[in-house]
Simulated assay, not measured.
Amino acid sequence: MGGAAVSTLDTVGAVLFIGWTVAMWSAVVVLAYANRGPVRPWLYKTAVGLIGLGVVGQLGHFQEHVSQAGYWVANPYSPAWMTPWAMSLARGMGQIDSTKPALGMEILHLTGNFIFLAGLVGIVLITKRATGQLKSRKWAKMGVWMQGIHGIEHIVLTASVALGASRAIGLSTWFGLIEPGPALVTYRVWWHFVANLIGTGILAVSLYHLRKEKRAVKNGYVAEVQPEEKPADILSCDLFPVSEEDVVRSPALTNRS
């Protein structure tokens, strides 16, 4: 980041972005715990919000990697590049330790990955009460495993820089053995681009099936709602709306693990 001055906007953006990540994982913890008990209307609404924020976050995250790959195609021998908004966030996050110029960028990509991961976990949680083998749940679990491993990679990259390594250490840097320069930039840019391309594809497939399986998902929430609780409270807040008539009330529905 070349020692550029950090603005108030950089700082505010970094705080909000980190806060976004913390809020999403707080929601994951609350949903995972609350889903073990009786259904409540807010469970469904919170899961929908978690998924929606995860999708928005990954759209921004993935476009960053697309931009980086596009810049590499035009400038294969130049240093790695980030969009202006990403540079702003990285500068703000880099204030954690200004003696390590790469730390802000590593934290930015770490938080971006965990926002995406939280959205995938949201799909797993929202389908927990549905019966049958849901394809949306299967694909989301696949995404959680993949992005979980990718998340570990970002944790290692960030921790290595934070602990004083001369360069980030991880699979995407060949454990720090590739010398800084065009070879390292090429390997790392395309490694993360491909990882995010596959992860985004898995998310898209999972969302496609979630839309097709919306009735089965909603049945798991409406079946246990008490008479005084309106099903419309659930049906009105949704990424994939259906009418009340579409929902089959069945007390025989059981939870899925």
Rank of each mutant, 00 (worst) to 15 (best):
V6H: 07
S7H: 03
S7F: 01
S7Y: 08
S7I: 10
T8M: 13
T8W: 04
T8G: 13
V12L: 11
V12M: 11
V12I: 14
G13N: 06
G13F: 01
G13I: 00
A14G: 11
A14K: 12
V15Y: 01
V15P: 00
V15H: 01
V15G: 00
L16H: 04
L16Q: 11
F17Q: 10
I18R: 05
W20I: 12
T21F: 13
V22Y: 00
M24Y: 01
M24D: 01
W25F: 02
W25E: 08
S26F: 10
S26H: 06
A27D: 15
V28A: 00
V28N: 05
V28H: 08
V29N: 09
V29R: 06
V30K: 11
Y33D: 15
A34P: 06
A34G: 05
N35R: 09
N35D: 04
N35A: 07
R36L: 13
G37E: 15
P38I: 12
V39W: 03
R40K: 15
P41S: 07
P41T: 04
L43M: 09
Y44R: 05
K45Y: 04
T46Y: 03
T46W: 02
A47F: 12
V48E: 06
G49H: 09
G49Q: 09
G49N: 09
L50M: 08
L50N: 02
L53P: 06
L53M: 11
G54E: 01
G54W: 00
G54M: 02
V55K: 11
G57Y: 06
Q58E: 14
Q58N: 15
Q58F: 10
L59I: 14
L59A: 14
G60T: 03
H61W: 03
F62N: 10
Q63H: 12
E64W: 02
E64Q: 15
E64C: 07
H65E: 15
V66S: 04
Q68W: 01
A69T: 08
Y71G: 15
W72H: 11
V73N: 02
V73I: 15
A74E: 13
A74I: 08
A74Y: 09
N75L: 05
N75V: 03
P76I: 13
P76T: 09
S78W: 14
P79R: 05
M82V: 11
M82I: 13
M82Y: 11
P84T: 06
W85I: 09
W85P: 02
A86C: 13
M87K: 15
M87E: 14
M87Y: 10
S88A: 12
S88K: 11
L89G: 06
L89D: 05
A90Q: 05
A90S: 12
M93V: 09
M93F: 07
G94A: 03
Q95E: 13
Q95D: 07
I96W: 05
I96D: 07
S98Q: 15
T99M: 07
T99L: 07
L103Y: 10
L103C: 03
G104I: 13
G104E: 04
H109V: 12
L110I: 01
G112Y: 10
N113W: 14
F116Q: 07
L117G: 00
L120H: 11
L120F: 12
V121D: 07
V121H: 02
V121E: 01
V121Q: 00
V121K: 00
V121T: 05
V124R: 02
L125T: 08
I126E: 15
K128A: 10
R129K: 08
R129F: 04
A130P: 09
